[in-house]
Amino acid sequence: MGGGIQGGHSGQAKRVSNASIFAGCAVFVFGMVGAAYASVPLYRLFCQITGYNGTTQRVEQYSSTVLDRTVQVTFDANISSGLNWDFKAAKAVQPKIGETIQVEYTATNRSAVATTGTAVFNVTPMEAGAYFNKVQCFCFTEQTLQPGESVSMPVVFYVDPEIVKAEETKNIRTITLSYSFYPSEPAKPVAAVKKNEADNKL
């Protein structure tokens, strides 16, 4: 009889143990899925804060210090195969370090319909990303162009004077800012979204 009670307790303990393992696995799986969805914006935020992987910095004010030393800045423009645009880079410049300067990219829609694109960017060498400060840019902003339409896309930036103090960047003489445009769906107005939601409920 004691053995029966012991066996019952053993079976119950095993069921509890299995349930605990299952619950733990479920939490782990949901956690991994959540991390996967969160990783992209978190990674982008991390890059923007640290300059990791050549990500430039976004600032709200101009530099207050200008050094008597120049750096060559070249520009690159790329288009995804899914976007029928002509995208041209700005001409190379050679500003003083700390000097705020504006350049312009240009884009032309070569298709017969309105299309929307979004640009991502990076800086090489990657170590310079943390010191390349953009006051104004068109990155991560949807650009919708009508058929045949051309637009100028300004970029206002400066190279942080701190770049000459860091061991890994003090000898950098040339920096390249590269943009790549990818097709995207234009965002719908809030009123249109609400109308669609109301229609779906009917």
Results as ranks from 00 to 15, higher is better:
Phe22Glu: 04
Phe22Gly: 03
Gly24Phe: 06
Gly24Cys: 05
Gly24His: 03
Cys25Tyr: 11
Ala26Pro: 05
Val27Glu: 08
Phe28Met: 13
Val29Trp: 00
Phe30Glu: 00
Phe30Leu: 06
Val33Gly: 05
Ala35Ser: 12
Ala35Phe: 11
Ala36Thr: 15
Tyr37Met: 13
Tyr37Ile: 14
Ala38Arg: 05
Ala38Cys: 07
Ala38Pro: 05
Ser39Ile: 14
Val40Ala: 07
Tyr43Ala: 07
Tyr43Met: 07
Arg44Glu: 10
Arg44Ile: 13
Leu45Trp: 14
Leu45Ile: 02
Leu45Cys: 01
Leu45Ser: 07
Phe46Gln: 10
Phe46Trp: 15
Cys47Gln: 14
Cys47Lys: 13
Gln48Val: 06
Ile49Pro: 00
Thr50Trp: 03
Gly51Tyr: 06
Tyr52Val: 12
Tyr52Gly: 09
Asn53Phe: 11
Gly54Ser: 03
Thr55Arg: 14
Thr55Gly: 09
Thr55Ser: 15
Thr56Ala: 13
Thr56Tyr: 08
Gln57Glu: 04
Arg58Cys: 07
Val59Glu: 10
Tyr62Ser: 13
Tyr62Ala: 14
Ser63Tyr: 04
Ser64Arg: 14
Leu67Thr: 10
Asp68Cys: 09
Arg69Ala: 12
Thr70Glu: 12
Thr70Arg: 11
Val71Leu: 08
Gln72Met: 07
Gln72Ile: 04
Gln72Cys: 02
Thr74Asp: 04
Thr74Phe: 00
Phe75Val: 02
Asp76Glu: 12
Asp76Gln: 12
Ala77His: 06
Ala77Ser: 11
Ala77Ile: 10
Ala77Thr: 09
Asn78Lys: 14
Ser81Thr: 14
Gly82Gln: 13
Gly82Ala: 11
Leu83Thr: 05
Asp86Lys: 15
Asp86Tyr: 09
Lys88Asn: 14
Ala90Gly: 07
Ala90Pro: 00
Ala90His: 02
Ala90Phe: 02
Ala92Ile: 01
Val93Tyr: 02
Val93Ala: 01
Pro95Lys: 03
Pro95Tyr: 07
Ile97His: 03
Gly98His: 07
Glu99Gly: 00
Thr100Asp: 01
Ile101Leu: 02
Val103Ile: 04
Glu104Trp: 02
Thr106Ala: 04
Ala107Ile: 04
Arg110Met: 08
Ala112Leu: 14
Thr115Ile: 06
Thr116Glu: 04
Thr118Phe: 02
Ala119Pro: 01
Val120Gly: 01
